[in-house]
Structures are given as structure tokens and as C-alpha cells.
Write a protein that binds this DNA or RNA. Structure first.
Length: 262
DNA sequence: GCAAAATGTCAAG
DNA sequence: TTGACCTTTTGCA
């Protein structure tokens, strides 16, 4: 499921498999039928991820996909399986297929409309030459809690509920602290960390935030991947205090009340 | 077999 | 601020 690393990984894979040649685009479910007709059989130039948005350019028409909470792509080598369920969009060439389901957004845009969406976003830690300065400018001037600011795509593009909780834990910062009460000595390592964690996420295809010394050796199973996310009531890996949860910015926030300070 | 939850966002009021 | 929306998986009976 999708935070920024998922979309960048998808862009990379789709470029490898589909870019620079024609793609058959269809919408077996029908909801994207009109859009599919516009780009069907055209050459796919490039797939780009910005934050949690995916843009596939076919000349002056771009397919814009946002996976929301539960959208997802599946894919594999040809031949494609018989369409099943609510299959919003399918891409096929002679070698590969990929299917999109569940996405709230799958639409054809012009270049200006795509630019408008990108312009609304804060810096993407996975972008080339990413800089956290614009994000820091907003955070250091805001009295909103840092746990809200990190989820705001205008502040940083690509962070979701898992990275939010885990980053704040890794830096010992209570989610309730107003942005303006962070010091730049806290922000600088946090920004460096989000770039590194998300890059690792792109590489492995999953989010792992525990340091090797804080988890059992060997393969990382789901129970050992996080410090706080979805661990409400379980003992903190560092101090054994029960992990707390409560909604913040409409999502369930998780934190350790001992390790994360105001 | 059904309800609830899940790594998200936007429009309506 | 609230509700709508998209689909699959999980947990409980």
C-alpha cells in the first residue's frame, strides 16, 4: 500500500517495462473507458512519480493516478490474465501487463493540469536534488503539531501515516509539538532520515524503520519492521512503555509517550 | 457471512 | 468539519 516510496518504485518498474513503445490501454470495468480511448496504442514516453502522484506521459496527454488508501497495481509477464473484478485500467504490450484497481483517481490530464497538481506539493524526499528547506520554512513558522505538518502534502510530498509515526519516534519528537518549536538541529537530521528511509523503501518495496540493533536478527517480518506503527498497547522496543494511539490529521497516530518528548 | 480497517484526498456545506 | 469514495483483507461470529 502506498506512501511515496511505492509510487517511485512503480514509476521505475513501469518505465522499464512500458516506456518508449506503444501500450494498449483499456478499462474493463468501464470507469476509465473514455480516458483509455484517448491514449490507447500511443507511445508511452515516461512515467514520473511526484509525492504520491503518478504521471504517465503520452505526448500531450498524461494519465494521472493516485492510489488513495487502497488502490494498487498488479503486474506480470504476458499473457495477461482474464480481467476479473473491478479492473479500472490495464496496460499491455507484447511482453508485460499491469492492472490498476481501487484508485480514487485515474484520469487523463493536459500538461498544465499536471503542473498545477505538482505545484501544490512540497518537496519530495525522493526527488533528485531534493531539499528540505521549503518544508522547514513552513514548519518553523507553523503552530500546527508536527504530526499534522508531516502528513500535509504541501509541506512534504510522499510521507504517509507509517513514515510520520516512525520518523517522529526515531527522532524522539512528540507528535503534538508545534512545528515552530522544533529546532533546525532537529529538522536537519529528520530530513536526512526521511530521504534515507524512503530510498530504502523504494529499493525493498516495503517500509522498515527499525534499526538492526532494535530487532531480531535475520529476515524482518512484519512484527519487527516498526517501532510504533500499529503497535498500540505493546511495549516500546526501547523503554517498554506501552505504545499509545489516538487520531491525528484523521489517521491513527502511534507514539511512545516516554521516548518522544515535548 | 458481514463489519471494520487499511500506508489518502477532496468537495460540499 | 464532515462525508464520500475507491477495493481488498482481516477478524470475528
Amino acid at each position: 500500500m502506498p506512501e511515496g516510496h511505492t509510487l517511485h518504485r512503480l514509476a521505475k518498474q513501469q518505465n522499464e517495462r512500458f516506456a518508449d513503445r506503444p501500450v494498449r490501454v483499456s478499462s474493463p470495468q468501464g470507469r476509465f473507458a473514455a480516458g483509455a480511448r484517448i491514449v490507447d496504442s500511443r507511445v508511452l514516453e515516461r512515467v514520473t512519480a511526484t509525492g504520491k502522484h503518478l504521471f504517465a506521459s503520452f505526448g500531450d496527454a498524461l494519465v494521472h493516478v493516485h492510489l488513495g488508501l487502497y488502490g494498487g497495481f498488479t503486474s506480470g509477464p504476458s499473457p495477461a490474465p482474464e480481467p476479473r473484478g473491478a479492473l479500472r485500467m490495464r496496460w499491455e504490450n507484447d511482453d508485460w501487463w499491469t492492472d490498476l484497481r481501487g484508485a480514487p483517481t485515474c484520469e487523463v490530464l493536459g500538461p498544465d493540469e499536471a503542473a498545477t497538481i505538482r505545484d501544490r506539493l512540497g518537496p519530495d524526499p525522493l526527488a533528485r536534488r531534493a531539499s528540505g528547506e521549503a518544508a522547514w520554512a513552513r514548519i518553523s513558522n507553523s503552530r500546527a503539531p508536527i504530526g499534522v505538518l508531516l502528513m500535509d502534502q504541501r509541506v512534504v510530498a510522499g510521507i504517509g501515516n507509517v513514515y510520520r509515526a516512525e520518523l517522529l519516534f526515531r527522532h524522539g519528537i512528540a507528535p503534538f509539538r508545534p512545528g515552530r518549536e522544533l529546532s533546525s538541529d532537529e529538522w536537519t537530521p529528520l530530513w536526512r532520515d526521511v530521504m534515507a528511509l524512503m530510498r530504502a523503501g523504494v529499493r525493498s518495496g516495503r517500509i522498515i524503520t527499525t534499526r538492526p540493533e532494535d530487532r531480531p536478527r535475520g529476515r524482518v517480518d512484519r512484527d519487527d519492521a516498526f517501532y510504533v506503527y500499529q503497535r498500540a498497547g505493546l511495549p516500546c522496543r526501547i523503554c517498554s512503555t506501552p505504545i499509545r494511539t489516538e487520531p491525528m490529521a484523521d489517521r491513527n497516530l502511534f507514539w511512545c509517550p516516554t521516548c518522544q518528548t515535548m
